[in-house]
């Protein structure tokens, strides 16, 4: 069996993390979780995820700071980051994209759009992946 690609979910709301985990598992992704800005970096280093879904309003380090630190890291800067936040896109979207985020979604986001962007951002995804697992 092929090894599943791993997505790190960074969000301080445990219910939302659980929901995203169910959604991503159903689409054949492995998941890891972090609930604040500080542990986000540590978990990313330990788990080496293929993609990160990042909330902005986080305790212990705002998501924008997490993004900055990810981008500055030698080992983590190549991981695509999708920002998923309740914050206003008009004030934040451009800033986050310029800081290196792959995409910006405002909560609540459409599941299909989110999954499309995840698939596009992960280089090794091919249509047959779902059938393999």
């Amino acid at each position: 069996m092929e090894k599943l690609q791993k997505i790190l979910i960074v969000d301080d709301d445990p219910d939302l993390r659980r929901a995203l985990k169910i959604r991503l598992r159903a689409n054949h992704y492995d998941t890891a979780q972090a609930s604040d800005g500080y542990s986000a970096i540590a978990v990313a280093q330990k788990e080496q995820p293929d993609l990160i879904i990042l909330d902005l309003g986080l305790p212990a380090g705002d998501g924008s700071v997490v993004l900055e630190r990810l981008q500055a890291s030698d080992t983590l800067s190549s991981i695509p980051v999708i920002v998923l936040t309740a914050r206003d896109p008009q004030a934040n979207e451009q800033k986050m994209l310029q800081a290196g985020a792959t995409a910006f979604f405002q909560k609540p986001a459409d599941n299909n759009e989110l999954l499309d962007v995840i698939r596009a951002a992960l280089p090794n995804t091919w249509p047959g992946t779902a059938l393999l697992s």
């Binding site: 939302l16 959604r23 309740a86 909560k107 609540p108 599941n111």
Partner: peptide, 26 residues
């Protein structure tokens, strides 16, 4: 602006779990 931001968080949760049920993931 604060209120509309805060309302989005629980709404996201409702949205996620309703779609999980609707899509047969549970």
């Amino acid at each position: 602006s604060h209120v509309s931001h805060e309302l989005r968080t629980p709404l996201t949760c409702i949205h996620q779990f309703v779609t999980i049920l609707l899509d047969g993931l549970a």
